[in-house]
């Protein structure tokens, strides 16, 4: 069963049809990448999932529930959190405050643990404790944020800002993390750092849907890839297989 499923999605911008009926599945615990050139509809797809752009027709299912055209803030409560394109960090706030804002949608929850003898233990975790825990996790993932936690977010470098944007999204404890062009405007070395962090996030159990221009790097970390062209899925398949196919990579991804 797929965590996220898109069926026959169609999106219009006024009279222009941006997405012309795409099918897409994201399985639990994997990294799925959407690739393609400018204007292929990558960002539109991710924005439609996140409810910022409304779909004309088609369905988006998350955990088998219809979430098409829900408002973004409701999706955050359901566990779909986006790290937006261009980072959009909150400039007037410190690094730590930025991260706390990310924990806005975290609610207290009770965990049920079934023991070996059949009895069920219930454990209550307050939102505050969960927030503290995710703050620790984010600092472990990006130690540089811990060093700079009292610093104004606007004074961070581009790479650090991207780390902050991803960290802020992780503070909401997402089930599905949407990453919109995390390599945008960053130096190649820093892009590698970011991509390593993305793999770590996946290993910790968060499912990731990533939209990227940097096709070659993305193919290396992704499990499954969709290549869009002019609003349609042109190619789909395992990233490892696509990486082997030199001609295809040259034709569609320009890497």
């Amino acid at each position: 069963m797929a965590l996220l499923e898109i069926k026959d999605l169609v999106v219009d911008y006024g009279v222009i049809r941006a997405i012309k009926g795409i099918q897409l599945e994201v399985h639990q615990g994997s990294i799925v990448a959407i690739l393609g050139s400018n204007g292929a509809g990558k960002t539109t797809t991710i924005r439609t999932i996140n409810g910022v752009v409304k779909a004309k027709s088609g369905q988006i299912l998350f955990e088998d529930k219809n979430i098409t055209n829900l408002d973004p803030y409701k999706l955050a409560a359901k566990g779909i959190i986006q790290s937006p394109e261009g980072r959009l960090i909150l400039r007037g706030l410190t690094v730590e405050e930025n991260l706390y804002v990310g924990a806005y949608s975290v609610k207290s929850k009770t965990i049920r643990i079934t023991q070996a003898d059949g009895t069920v233990l219930t454990k209550k975790q307050s939102a505050r404790a969960l927030t503290k825990q995710s703050l620790q996790e984010v600092f472990e993932l990006f130690p540089v944020l811990k060093e700079r936690r009292k610093q104004q977010a606007s004074t961070l470098s581009g790479g650090e800002q991207q780390m902050l944007a991803i960290g802020r999204a992780l503070m909401g404890r997402p089930k599905l993390l949407l990453l919109d062009e995390p390599s945008l405007g960053l130096a190649p070395l820093i892009v590698q750092d970011i991509f390593k962090a993305i793999v770590k996030i996946k290993e910790q159990g968060t499912t990731i849907l990533i939209v990227e221009q940097n096709a070659f790097q993305t193919l290396k970390i992704a499990d499954y890839v969709y290549v869009l062209e002019l609003g349609k899925v042109k190619i789909k398949g395992n990233a490892a297989d696509l990486l082997k196919d030199d001609q295809l990579v040259k034709a569609y991804l320009g890497a």
């Binding site: 803030y73 955050a76 959009l88 804002v101 806005y104």
Partner: peptide, 24 residues
Amino acid sequence: SPTGRAMLAMKNSESAAQAMGVSI
């Protein structure tokens, strides 16, 4: 409180605030 931080987020960037679950 989270209310104050949510408002600050909204002031800074409405789309970022919404992405984090803040209802404008």
